[in-house]
Design a protein around this nucleic acid. Structure first.
Length: 288
DNA sequence: AGGATAGCCTGCGGGC
DNA sequence: TGCCCGCAGGCTATCC
């Protein structure tokens, strides 16, 4: 399930294939995966046909292919989305949940968007400024989040936020890029109980949490991201970080720190795994 | 209005 | 062996 490190991995692996390439030919096998931005439509033109790719951007979990003439397509991988390059000018069909494809020239290759569960999709923008406005609704990108930014985000409301820190971390409007896997991993590494009220985290705790978010993202990127089932990068390669998860998916197993049994609960409609000993609800006890 | 909840969608694995 | 059910979760819409 692509979160920030996986999406960044896709961005980096696609860059050499896409930047400078011309898009000649667009295939769409499911119209309903495309959502037109303001003034846009679902045409091949909106999907960058006839343009030259200038850059691939990312904010949080969202990718965008930006053309030299400022047209842009935002790609959302959702849960099971894949965006990858298939070499050769092969025939394209909509089998195996391949919903859209682009022809890349002069290399002669196909960029393919595949998404079995269709939680993902494509957003088209005739001017990249409309995309930037959309991205302004998201919080700061989590890859470079600072403790001060995190503290400000959690305390920006008039009253201190009562929701849990786990729910807050998953809120893309507050912080862009964190999903269920890395929320649990960072909270564990920062020794913060997932049920702590977000508005009551101290500046020092926010600093620690921001440090661990950046650290866990850096380690995941190094390993090529987490692949649980579907994730592949732009070259079709899976990631290896899943093997290093300390708590995610390990409910009932032993805590790698203290050997206590990891607890699995449901929080903000998400399975949440943590260590009751290393992540005390009362922050004054058992501080590392 | 902030926060919780339902629904979208497919594949897979456990249980019988 | 095969079927059914539960579960995985990013995001939007809707409700309270």
């Amino acid at each position: 399930m692509p979160e920030l490190p996986e999406v960044e991995r896709v961005r980096r692996s696609l860059e050499p294939h896409l930047v400078g390439s011309f898009i000649e030919g667009v295939w769409v096998f499911r119209q309903d995966i495309i959502e037109p931005g303001p003034g846009g439509a679902r045409t091949a033109y909106d999907l960058l046909n006839g343009s030259r790719v200038a850059e691939i951007r990312r904010h949080g979990k969202q990718l965008a292919i930006v053309a030299e003439d400022r047209r842009a397509v935002c790609v959302h991988l959702g849960m099971t989305g894949q965006l990858f390059v298939q070499p050769g000018r092969s025939a394209i069909n909509g089998q195996e949940h391949r919903h859209a494809a682009w022809g890349l020239e002069p290399a002669g290759a196909r960029l393919i968007f595949r998404d079995p569960r269709r939680f993902g999709g494509l957003w088209t923008f005739r001017n990249v400024r409309a995309l930037e406005e959309r991205w302004q609704a998201l919080g700061p990108d989590a890859l470079a989040i600072t403790g001060v930014q995190l503290h400000q985000g959690l305390h920006s409301a008039a009253r201190p936020s009562r929701r849990t820190i786990k729910a807050a971390l998953l809120d893309q409007g507050l912080l862009a890029g964190v999903g269920n896997i890395y929320a649990d991993e960072a909270l564990f590494a920062a020794h913060i109980h997932p049920r702590r009220p977000a508005g009551k985290l101290t500046a020092a705790e926010c600093e620690r949490l921001a440090d661990e978010l950046r650290a866990v993202f850096a380690r995941a990127l190094q390993a090529g991201g987490s692949t649980l089932r579907d994730f592949v990068d732009g070259d079709g390669q899976p990631g290896r970080y899943g093997l290093q998860h300390a708590v995610y998916g390990r409910g009932g197993e032993l805590c790698p720190n203290c050997r206590a049994t990891l607890k699995s609960i449901t929080l903000a409609q998400r399975t949440t795994v943590f260590c009751v000993t290393c992540q005390p609800l009362n922050k004054r006890r058992n501080r590392p």
